[in-house]
Structure formats: C-alpha cells, structure tokens
C-alpha cells in the first residue's frame, strides 16, 4: 500500500517529506488547508502505527517531528469533538443509563435507507467507504487493552476474541468483510478506496485511533465501542435485508448477518462488563465514557447526513 493522495498544502508537504529518504518533516510549519487536508494527514500518520506504507520508511513511525505534527492536528481534532459534546449525567444504574443515553440519541439511519430505498451503486459506494474501517475492524480498540485494570481488560478481550474469530482466521470479522468485498466485485486490499472517501469517514477512523492510542482517552475508547456495538444489531439486520433486496452476494450479506447476532452479545459486554467494570474501578472516567459514546454517534450522524443528502438529491 502506498500513501494516499494529498488533499491540501499540509498533506502534500507531509507526504512528500515522508516519501523522501531523509523524511524531514521538521520544517513543516503549515496549517492545514481545510478539514480534508488535516484528516488525510492525520489518517496517514496514524496508519504508520498499523500496517504502514510501502513508500514510507518504517523508522518514521516514531520520528519526533512526525509525532509533533500529529499532536498538533490531534489537539485541534479533540477540541472540535469536545466542543460538539454536552456533558451529561447518566441515569443509574450505569448500564441502563448508558443504554438509554445511546437509545435517546436520534440520528438519520443509513441502514434504513439501504433496507428500502438505496440502489446498487449507492450500496457499493457505502461498502467502499466502510471498507476503511471494516478491513481493520476492532484493531483501534486493541490499543486500549494494556491501559486497563484487570476486570475491564479481561472483559474487553472476551469481546475482542470474538471479533478476531475466536482464534479461527476464517471467522475474523475483518476477513469476513474482505470476502464480502471480493464477492461483490470490489477490491479487498486495505485502503484501496482511501482516495474516494469523504472527510466524515476519515474523522470516524481518526477518532478511533485517537482514543485508542492515548491512555488518557482509554475511557472514551471504550465508550465509543459501547455506542458502536449498541447501534449495530438492528441496523445490521436492515443492511442484510437491503443487500438481499439488491441481490448482492451471500458473502456480503453473511457479514451483516453475523453482526446481528455477534453485536447483540457485544453490546451487553461493552456496556456491562467492559465500561461497567471500568467505571466501577475508576468512577471519574464516566464522563469520558459518555464523550466517547457521543463521538461515535455524532460522527456516524454526520456521515449519514452527508450520504443521504447526496443520494436523495440524485
């Protein structure tokens, strides 16, 4: 995999520096042109911690200048996410309070549109966008594991063991999505479609990496996971029905059907045994759990609004 296309002055200069043998990022004092520019630069710098790029020296993963630039962009990003969030006191008990918080959040539903209205091209576009995350499904929250105390750590691994196929690579969720992409005539190599995705998809992915890579944000990482899982089962059923209506391949339908059942379990684990155990240990982290949950719901809303706006205008 090669670096993505630049989207503005900062990413242009950054990618040029990352590709050069010396990797001199130190002289970059540019401000991003816009959010697209900022988020593709941040996404690429995060990617150095996952699979990396063929045209970037692996040494640059821990280059202080790259980390410094990443930190500048992260500060702006996190400040923006926090400015959209209103602190809320959850009802007691915690698990019911968090489930209710997620259920009370009202946003547009891409899954409902796919179930009843979307055409084949629109669904394939959605799958290309979703591939950026689903091909590394559950990887970002794996960064959080060593930052947790005993009970939530064991609980998170209980959930992730299922995400990663229970030890069977054939059942690893990211692999199931890759099979679905191939059967649908789409590319299944990671980030094949990175140049096509809107900024909202970059933000969704960058938020998970931000939360995962910072111990300070471990509770937001788990709150994000809880909201993600708690808004997956029923929408996955709708997605599966929409894909069946459009006669997409069984492999892609199977991916969503698997998530109907898996995420009905995972939402209970994420809310009760993972977040519940974390806030029992560290009660002051409840606000960050809610911040992470809100961010998941909010960024999904923004992506759904963009896509529904484009599709309904077409």
């Amino acid at each position: 995999m090669l670096l993505p296309k630049a989207r503005g002055e900062l990413s242009e200069a950054l990618f040029e520096a990352l590709r050069s043998e010396t990797g001199e990022v130190g002289s970059l004092h540019l401000r991003p042109t816009d959010q697209d520019d900022a988020h593709i630069a941040l996404w690429a710098m995060y990617e150095l911690h996952y699979a990396g790029f063929e045209d970037v020296d692996d040494e640059l993963e821990w280059d202080p200048d790259v980390l410094g630039l990443r930190r500048l962009l992260e500060r702006d990003f996190e400040a923006g996410l926090r400015s959209r969030h209103t602190a809320t006191t959850l009802d007691e008990p915690f698990a019911e309070g968090l489930f209710a918080y997620v259920a009370d959040h009202d946003g547009p539903s891409l899954a409902a549109y796919v179930q009843r209205t979307a055409d084949r091209e629109q669904v394939l576009e959605l799958l290309r966008h979703r591939s950026i995350y689903h091909l590394k499904e559950s990887d970002p929250v794996a960064w959080t594991v060593p930052r947790l105390p005993t009970a939530p750590k064991a609980a998170l691994i209980e959930l992730q063991y299922d995400e990663f196929g229970g030890g069977d690579p054939n059942r690893l969720h990211a692999h199931l999505f890759a099979l679905g992409l191939e059967a649908s005539g789409l590319r299944a190599d990671p980030y094949a479609y990175i140049d096509d995705v809107p900024v909202e998809i970059l933000e969704l992915n960058n938020a998970m990496s931000l939360f995962g890579l910072h111990r300070r944000l471990r509770a937001a990482s788990l709150g994000h996971l809880a909201a993600f899982e708690a808004t997956s089962s029923l929408p996955s059923r709708r997605m599966a029905q929409g894909l069946a209506r459009l006669e997409l391949p069984q492999e892609m339908i199977a991916y969503y059907e698997e998530h109907v059942e898996a995420d009905a379990v995972h939402e209970q684990l994420a809310v009760r045994t993972i977040c519940g155990a974390l806030v029992a240990d560290e009660p002051h982290l409840v606000d960050d759990v809610v911040f992470g949950a809100f961010t998941c719901l909010d960024l999904e809303d923004r992506y759904a609004q963009r896509m529904l706006g484009e599709w309904e205008a077409a």
Partner: peptide
C-alpha cells in the same frame, strides 16, 4: 439468540 429486538 438475541438480535437486539427487545430494545424496540
């Protein structure tokens, strides 16, 4: 198995 329907 549960499919999340209880929530609606």
């Amino acid at each position: 198995w549960c499919d999340g329907t209880h929530k609606v």
